[in-house]
């Protein structure tokens, strides 16, 4: 019987010790660890990575076709930042955020976690952290690849200001990714059809409200992300941004201090993570 059927060793733990709950951090870590391993083997990671090569291809095209005078590196960086902030970050976060917990609920595999001596918050945090890190890593690697393409054999571009702007873009994109992923993960945990809500939020609320001047904009994540890269040329490189800047000046609005945007984004992330964990605690599945 393969060594089975024996009694427990005499030093076996008593019932209370047997019923100890696994610490939140340890449980979350192991769930994240196995989620990473799982994600690393899925074809979807390759698909998203392929999408992340598109801006790199754009940068290659810029190196081949662009004129340094008409379209200098810092303007290219500003455009890339906007591409990442307004589109790719949302796209990648949507891919990993909605599926982080929502897929486990939809498919019913979350039941295996639910029948372990761990709090549901640990399950939520573990899955979310895994999704956030993978999504952010893909975006950051893609931006890094763009940096390499822009600077290799083009040493004149590499000034301290340029590097600072680049580092800031990477940091803001990573932060944006973490916030969006947390929002989409909460939707995945709480809604039966999270995709509809996520699409309306990402391409309705975030996109449309961002175009309304005055304080309404501050209710979007993208506003605060843009605010954090305002000091770059991105702030006025496109026509809508230029127009918004003009309107802001007409209304004598001072730009929001960076720390406020940073705090707002972190607060949003913490609040939606708490909300998501609470929703998962209340969740019941019947399959």
């Amino acid at each position: 019987m393969n060594g089975l059927g024996r009694l427990r060793a005499s030093g076996q733990p008593s019932a209370p010790a047997l019923e100890r709950t696994l610490p939140l951090a340890a449980a979350a870590f192991w769930i994240a660890w196995f989620s990473w391993r799982e994600m690393a083997r899925r074809r979807r990671l390759l698909a998203v990575a392929a999408v992340m090569l598109v801006p790199v291809a754009c940068t290659v095209a810029w190196r081949l076709l662009g004129s340094a005078q008409l379209f200098p590196a810092n303007v290219m960086l500003a455009n890339l930042s906007m591409l990442y902030l307004t589109f790719l970050t949302v796209l990648v976060s949507l891919a990993f955020g909605i599926t982080a917990v929502g897929e486990e609920i939809e498919e019913g595999t979350i039941i295996y976690y639910w029948t372990r001596p761990i709090g549901r918050s640990a399950i939520y945090i573990g899955r979310l952290v895994a999704a956030q890190t993978v999504a952010a890593a893909l975006l950051a690697l893609s931006l890094a690849a763009c940096f390499v393409v822009m600077t290799v054999g083009n040493s004149g571009v590499v000034t301290s200001r340029f590097v600072e702007l680049y580092a800031r873009s990477v940091a803001v994109v990573t932060l944006g990714c973490a916030v969006y992923t947390a929002i989409f993960a909460a939707m995945g945990a709480g809604l039966r059809r999270p995709l509809i809500a996520a699409l309306i939020y990402a391409f309705g609320w975030e996109a449309m409200t961002g175009l309304i001047p005055a304080r309404v904009q501050q209710l979007t994540v993208v506003f605060h992300l843009r605010n954090l890269v305002r000091n770059t040329e991105a702030g006025t490189s496109s026509f809508p941004n230029l127009l918004l800047e003009l309107l802001r000046q007409l209304r004598h609005e001072a730009p929001l201090p960076e720390w406020r945007s940073l705090v707002t984004l972190l607060l949003v992330m913490v609040v939606v993570t708490g909300l998501g964990a609470w929703l998962l605690r209340r969740k019941e599945i019947f399959r």
């Binding site: 979807r44 698909a47 598109v54 754009c58 810029w62 379209f71 591409l83 891919a95």
Partner: peptide, 29 residues
Amino acid sequence: RRTVFVVLGWLLLFSGTQIIARILSLFGG
């Protein structure tokens, strides 16, 4: 097979190509 990834492909095609083409046209004509 996963709807969410089809959606992402659709968004990339519909909205993403617009942003990318605009950036490319700035220096590529």
